[in-house]
Computed example of a mutant assay.
Amino acid sequence: MKPEQLQEEIVTILQENSRIEVQQLADMLGVTAQAVEKQLKELQEKRIILRFGTVVNWQKLGRQKVYALIDVKITPQRGHGFDALAKRIYRFPEVHSVYVMSGTYDLSVGLEVDSLEAVGRFVTEKLSPLDSVVSTTTHFVLKKYKEDGVIFDDPENDQRLVISP
């Protein structure tokens, strides 16, 4: 298997289960554990794999988190476009994600904070005062159904009657 193909296979498997053991991964791919470790190191050095993560349902732990999506209209900076402002925004610790968007707004900023007040403070004290920010529209996530491919709802028991001909 070519190294590029091996890397793609590794990434595909890790995207579904980042806790898989190196030896199990090697067995699945028909290569040695050393070959997998070498490819993992290279994938991380090239910043193809950026981190290994866990999706947490904070509500089940009794901890409330507030998730907000903020649409931002900006004036692009000469020579930098949207990149310079996006970089300033994604450096704030409460910012979970930043995307450049097509459509009415230029950037979409995702926040993960502990209160509605924290969202308000972020928008009024940090985001809106930035040069080039023209306007913002804030949306609050009321319920998460699925994130990063993980379904949050408990599996439902099918209550329908089985009818066979």
Rank of each mutant, 00 (worst) to 15 (best):
P3N: 06
Q5F: 05
L6Y: 01
Q7I: 03
E8Y: 00
E9C: 02
T12E: 01
L14G: 00
Q15P: 01
Q15F: 03
Q15S: 12
E16K: 01
N17C: 00
R19G: 05
E21G: 10
Q23A: 12
Q23I: 11
L25H: 00
D27C: 06
V31S: 01
Q34T: 07
A35H: 00
V36A: 02
V36P: 00
E37V: 05
E37K: 13
K38M: 08
Q39Y: 00
Q39R: 04
L40N: 02
E42S: 08
Q44R: 14
R47S: 08
I48V: 11
R51F: 07
R51H: 07
G53Q: 03
G53R: 02
V55Y: 07
V56R: 03
W58F: 13
W58Q: 09
K60A: 09
K60S: 10
K60D: 13
L61T: 05
Q64S: 12
V66M: 03
V66W: 00
V66D: 04
Y67I: 08
Y67R: 13
A68R: 13
I70P: 04
D71P: 02
D71N: 14
V72A: 09
V72L: 04
T75D: 11
Q77I: 06
Q77R: 14
Q77V: 07
R78P: 08
R78N: 06
H80L: 03
H80G: 02
G81K: 11
G81I: 04
F82W: 04
F82V: 10
D83G: 09
D83K: 15
D83E: 14
A84M: 11
A86L: 02
A86T: 01
R88D: 13
Y90S: 10
R91D: 10
P93A: 04
P93G: 06
E94L: 09
E94V: 08
V98Q: 07
V100F: 06
M101H: 11
S102R: 14
S102F: 13
S102E: 13
T104R: 15
Y105G: 01
L111P: 13
E112K: 12
D114P: 07
S115T: 14
S115F: 03
A118E: 15
A118P: 02
V119C: 06
F122P: 13
V123K: 09
T124D: 05
E125C: 04
E125Y: 05
L127Y: 08
S128G: 03
P129G: 07
P129K: 08
L130N: 06
D131R: 13
S132N: 15
V133L: 14
V134D: 12
T138E: 12
H139A: 13
H139M: 14
F140P: 12
V141G: 07
K144M: 09
K144Q: 12
Y145D: 12
D148I: 00
V150A: 03
F152L: 13
D153A: 08
D153K: 07
P155L: 11
E156L: 14
E156N: 06
D158M: 06
R160K: 13
V162R: 15
P165H: 09
